[in-house]
Nucleic acid binder design. Structure first.
Length: 134
DNA sequence: GCCAACGTTGGC
DNA sequence: GCCAACGTTGGC
């Protein structure tokens, strides 16, 4: 069981859009590191859903419902997608500011590699962030 | 809108 | 294979 975080710009694809559709094909990733993270995702892994640019916070929890396969939006065999489904919206969002302010989260990949759209989350980090959503 | 960080491209 | 130029992401 692994934990991840994906970013989305809410005016392009928000948590509410995600819930409305009931699932999402996470396509369009064109970055090798993000791609490698998606390839490492296993069915049932938990994924934080983060709003970038607007909000700048974790809004909900998703789960990997289908493991990686060729990205149908391109012929290029280098790129893959995974499928995600929403689990729940958090009662309280966790802002980037709050995560940066927490010493226990100082090595969070989201903070260290701010431009990466799919990042791993350590189990300990996951538990800490989850505790901040209540 | 600005700009830092960082990934990609292409000339040599 | 190096590196300058350029493009993109994303926080502020």
């Amino acid at each position: 069981m692994n934990y991840w975080l994906v970013k989305s710009e809410p005016f392009k694809y928000s948590w509410d859009d995600f819930v409305k559709e009931g699932k999402s094909v996470w396509d369009g990733v064109r970055n090798y590191q993000a791609r490698n993270n998606m390839k490492a995702m296993q069915k049932g892994d938990w994924v934080f859903f983060y709003h970038s640019n607007e909000g700048v916070e974790i809004v909900g929890l998703a789960e990997v419902s289908k493991e990686f396969y060729q990205d149908p939006t391109t012929e290029d065999p280098r790129w893959v997608v995974v499928e995600l489904k929403p689990i729940k919206k958090f009662p309280k969002t966790v802002t980037l500011k709050a995560m940066k302010a927490d010493d226990r989260l100082s090595s969070l990949a989201l903070i260290k590699q701010s431009r990466l759209s799919v990042t791993p989350v350590q189990k300990a980090e996951f538990d800490i962030i989850l505790s901040l959503t209540e």
